[in-house]
Simulated assay, not measured.
Amino acid sequence: MTLSAPSARSVDLRVEPVENVLDHVARSLQVDLDRDTVVRKRRSVGARTDRRTWVRIERRGLDRIGVQGWNGTECAARLEGVAQPVWRGCVVWRDADEPVMWRVDETDLLPSAPIGNAILSEDPKLQDAWWQAFNASLDALADQDTRRVATPDTVTITQALVTEAIRSISHSHDFDTTIQSWVPAHADLNWANMTAPTFCLFDWEDWGNAPRGLDSASLWGSSLAVPALADRVWQERRRDFESRDGKLMTLFVCSKILGPDAHPEDPRLTPARRVAERIVSELQAG
């Protein structure tokens, strides 16, 4: 009989006390943390160090650490041709009181500021050189080899997951949803995980093999509230969007926007629904 890992208490690190954790990190890495730079998110905490690096601290329950592990940033360090912060090292420990583990990854500082929130409401007015660097990194990433499997929204992506998501919005079962090409993807590509004016892609926790076009479709979905920006993403990644797999990934992303938890005033609803209907018609026509 296989014993499953115990479930961890659900916490929000934006409000959970973390001073002891920060002290542990400082001792383990032999650095001083600039407490004025601490950024607290639901699943992670980050801070700048006195050696001009950045540490990202994540808490994860043992039941959420699967076969793949949770060393995405470390594994991404070997990727060639992808603009990302240099990875320096890590510290991992098991919590003494709860069924959770803590992981700290230390990287170089970002070359520029993050572009914005995951979903933008105004055009960041990126230069052509930025788009060239963006395309070069995405193309280089797709040419790599890995055994990792992407975990968008921390859920392992599978053919069954893709099919279920697409069926939830297509209301039709008369076209094939089988993915033909699986390639390495960042799997959390949005405007909060890239920098400008110098392009850099960070937060690699979820990367791995995914259907071709996932990253392009994800960024397009994050841009729909700014039509000109969404159009630019589509133009830059046209090869992805015009492929069959890219069309399926666009539907996959639309399913997240149009799902049961959608906010009725989300400005992305109407364009996502319109594009989804068009793509379904194209796939039905063969």
Results as ranks from 00 to 15, higher is better:
residue 1 M to F: 12
residue 5 A to H: 13
residue 8 A to R: 11
residue 9 R to Q: 15
residue 9 R to W: 09
residue 16 E to S: 03
residue 34 D to F: 09
residue 34 D to S: 08
residue 35 R to K: 05
residue 35 R to Q: 08
residue 35 R to M: 02
residue 36 D to F: 02
residue 36 D to Q: 13
residue 43 R to C: 02
residue 44 S to N: 12
residue 45 V to F: 07
residue 47 A to N: 07
residue 49 T to L: 02
residue 50 D to W: 02
residue 51 R to V: 11
residue 52 R to F: 09
residue 54 W to Q: 07
residue 57 I to D: 01
residue 60 R to Q: 13
residue 62 L to C: 07
residue 66 G to Y: 03
residue 67 V to F: 12
residue 70 W to F: 14
residue 73 T to F: 01
residue 73 T to W: 05
residue 74 E to H: 13
residue 74 E to D: 10
residue 75 C to L: 15
residue 79 L to N: 04
residue 80 E to T: 15
residue 84 Q to T: 11
residue 86 V to F: 01
residue 86 V to N: 00
residue 90 C to I: 00
residue 90 C to Y: 08
residue 91 V to Q: 11
residue 93 W to A: 07
residue 93 W to C: 09
residue 94 R to A: 15
residue 96 A to G: 14
residue 102 W to N: 08
residue 104 V to I: 14
residue 107 T to W: 01
residue 109 L to R: 06
residue 110 L to E: 01
residue 110 L to R: 04
residue 114 P to Y: 11
residue 115 I to L: 15
residue 116 G to A: 10
residue 116 G to V: 10
residue 119 I to Y: 14
residue 123 D to F: 10
residue 123 D to M: 06
residue 126 L to M: 06
residue 137 S to Y: 11
residue 142 A to D: 07
residue 143 D to I: 00
residue 143 D to F: 00
residue 150 A to I: 04
residue 151 T to R: 15
residue 154 T to K: 06
residue 156 T to D: 00
residue 158 T to P: 09
residue 159 Q to I: 04
residue 163 T to V: 06
residue 167 R to K: 13
residue 168 S to G: 14
residue 178 T to M: 11
residue 178 T to L: 12
residue 179 I to Q: 05
residue 180 Q to G: 14
residue 180 Q to L: 12
residue 180 Q to P: 00
residue 181 S to C: 08
residue 186 H to G: 04
residue 187 A to D: 00
residue 188 D to L: 03
residue 190 N to A: 04
residue 191 W to Q: 02
residue 196 A to R: 00
residue 201 L to M: 15
residue 203 D to P: 03
residue 205 E to R: 00
residue 207 W to L: 00
residue 208 G to C: 05
residue 208 G to S: 07
residue 212 R to H: 03
residue 215 D to C: 07
residue 217 A to R: 08
residue 220 W to G: 10
residue 220 W to C: 07
residue 221 G to Y: 05
residue 227 P to G: 11
residue 233 V to R: 02
residue 235 Q to Y: 00
residue 240 D to R: 10
residue 242 E to L: 13
residue 243 S to Q: 01
residue 243 S to F: 01
residue 247 K to Y: 00
residue 253 V to I: 15
residue 253 V to M: 10
residue 255 S to Q: 08
residue 256 K to Q: 12
residue 256 K to E: 08
residue 260 P to Q: 08
residue 262 A to N: 03
residue 262 A to L: 02
residue 263 H to M: 12
residue 274 R to A: 14
residue 277 E to N: 08
residue 278 R to G: 03
residue 279 I to H: 01
residue 279 I to F: 02
residue 281 S to R: 15
residue 282 E to V: 15
residue 285 A to F: 00
residue 286 G to D: 06
